[in-house]
Amino acid sequence: MRTGRSWAWSFVAPALLILGLYLVYPTLATIYTSFLDRGSVHWVGLENYGYAFTSPAMLTAFRNNLLWLFLFTAATVGLGLMLAVLTDRVRYEAVAKSVIFLPMAVSFVGAGVVWKFVYAYNPPGASQIGLLNQIVVALGGQPVGWLLERPWMNNIALIVVGVWIWTGFAMVILSAAYKGIPRDLKEAARVDGAGEWQLFWRVSLPYIQSTLAVVTTTMLINVLKVFDIVYVMTNGNFGTEVVANRMYKEMFQFRNFGRASAVAVVLFLAIVPLMLLNIRRFRQQEVER
């Protein structure tokens, strides 16, 4: 028995060592550094966490992350579910899904660059190179600084990019769950007089609710870590700062390792409950199977 266990540990040990070196140790080191000063020399206690929860820049980042949290999640999951149902009824389902899923094949940095050109702005009277402003000017309007004016407009413009990328992912997962609904169950509901709307709300939606919950929590985790789009398109300027981008600035731009580590710990603590919820749901699904 001991020999068998020794063999088992000999196979598991390399993976545990790698996880310890590249995951556990950096996490513990970051937590420790969050209590040190900008040069990681002197102990400053909770000073960095005070900055993380009181500074205007971080408060703006928290506000924007909450905006992303609600709008991005609702849009990706809602559109993904709608498209999963609609594409199930078209003849060229595979082609339609491929086109919708295509943005996932583009890197987030690449998508940010593309959409930065879409939102590009030049003053009135100048030639417009941005697609949206070309349309606005062609319709007789004035060009709009989509990423330069009004923080609510800036953030929504960035959220649109995230939705464009992630909706295809949500659609594919939800489509698989939707196709798993037994046809007999749908036919029985139709025989009982249920219309398509009632069929969706009373039969389809309850049947795929576990998958819907997993997709929702996955989107929440992704949006809490949003960085690439904001960094490429605005770098957090014009009222578009988010927590992950602020962490990057504190670390690499301001060279304040203590504050950057504190922001990283705050972000980590915000994500952990959602990760645990996702793991719990996966385990429940395994038990149900």
Rank of each mutant, 00 (worst) to 15 (best):
M1F: 11
G4D: 05
G4S: 13
R5G: 08
A8E: 05
S10H: 02
F11H: 05
V12P: 11
P14Y: 13
L16T: 13
L16W: 14
L19W: 15
L21S: 10
Y22N: 10
P26N: 05
T27D: 09
T27P: 09
L28I: 14
Y32G: 08
F35Y: 14
L36M: 14
R38C: 01
G39V: 04
W43D: 07
G45N: 14
L46Y: 11
Y49P: 00
Y49G: 00
G50N: 15
F53A: 02
T54W: 06
S55N: 14
S55C: 09
S55P: 06
S55M: 10
P56Y: 05
A61Q: 13
F62L: 14
F62C: 03
N64I: 03
N65L: 10
L66H: 06
L67A: 12
W68L: 12
F72W: 11
A75I: 02
A75R: 01
A75C: 14
T76G: 00
G78H: 05
G78L: 07
G80L: 03
A84M: 05
A84V: 12
V85N: 06
L86H: 00
R89L: 14
R89D: 08
R91M: 10
Y92A: 12
V95E: 11
K97Q: 15
K97L: 11
S98Y: 05
V99W: 06
F101W: 03
F101P: 01
P103H: 01
V106S: 01
F108V: 04
G110E: 04
G112E: 01
V113K: 03
V114A: 10
F117M: 13
A120T: 01
Y121I: 03
N122Y: 08
P123F: 07
S127N: 06
Q128C: 06
Q128Y: 06
I129T: 15
I129N: 12
L132D: 09
N133H: 07
G140E: 13
G141D: 08
G141I: 07
Q142S: 13
P143I: 10
V144P: 02
G145T: 06
E149Y: 10
N154K: 07
A157I: 12
A157Y: 04
V160P: 01
V163L: 09
W164Q: 00
I165A: 00
I165Y: 00
A170V: 07
A170W: 02
V172G: 04
S175K: 11
A176E: 08
A176M: 07
A177V: 10
A177W: 06
Y178T: 11
G180E: 12
L185G: 00
L185F: 06
W197A: 10
L199H: 08
L205H: 05
I208T: 04
Q209N: 05
T211R: 06
V214K: 09
V214L: 15
T216K: 02
T216D: 00
T217P: 02
T218R: 01
T218K: 00
L220W: 03
F227E: 08
N235T: 12
G236T: 13
G239H: 09
T240C: 13
T240L: 11
V242P: 04
V243P: 01
V243S: 05
N245G: 00
N245K: 09
R246G: 05
M247S: 04
Y248C: 03
F252C: 07
F252D: 06
F252E: 09
Q253L: 15
F257N: 02
G258L: 03
A260Y: 05
S261G: 08
I271E: 00
P273D: 03
P273V: 03
L274C: 11
M275H: 00
L277M: 11
L277R: 04
N278P: 02
I279H: 04
